[in-house]
Amino acid sequence: MDRNMKILVVDDFSTMRRIIKNLLKELGFSNIDEADDGVTALPMLQQGQYDFLVTDWNMPGMTGIDLLKAVRTDPALAQLPVLMVTAEAKREQIIMAAQAGVNGYIVKPFNGPTLKEKIEKIFERVQS
């Protein structure tokens, strides 16, 4: 796994963006950008050569699930690994995200080791 990969963290709460960013830094990643919803994130993804997307679900403007769908329908972004970190915990929603092509799903509240484990798992699969 490339520790220099470019990561976009999308969440409408600045507290959560900051926490995720700090956890990623502890895991050795430092090339991290932030966006506060899908509307802001999508053009960044389209222009920014990102390697990994970490997104919340429930956000004003464009939700995480809509962002995921937009990413999967954009030929340039379709292969981008996407991890959802969200408080949305209905089984139906997790299935919805899986069907939309999510690579990993973490429910809040979560912790550092869980984030590490899911990221490692995602990149093991992407590379294999």
């Binding site: 679900w57 699930i65 408080a87 949305e88 915990a89 209905k90 139906e92």
Partner: peptide, 9 residues
């Protein structure tokens, strides 16, 4: 509603 997100349990 599910698509829009229903918030933490």
């Amino acid at each position: 509603e599910l698509r829009a997100g229903i918030g933490p349990a």
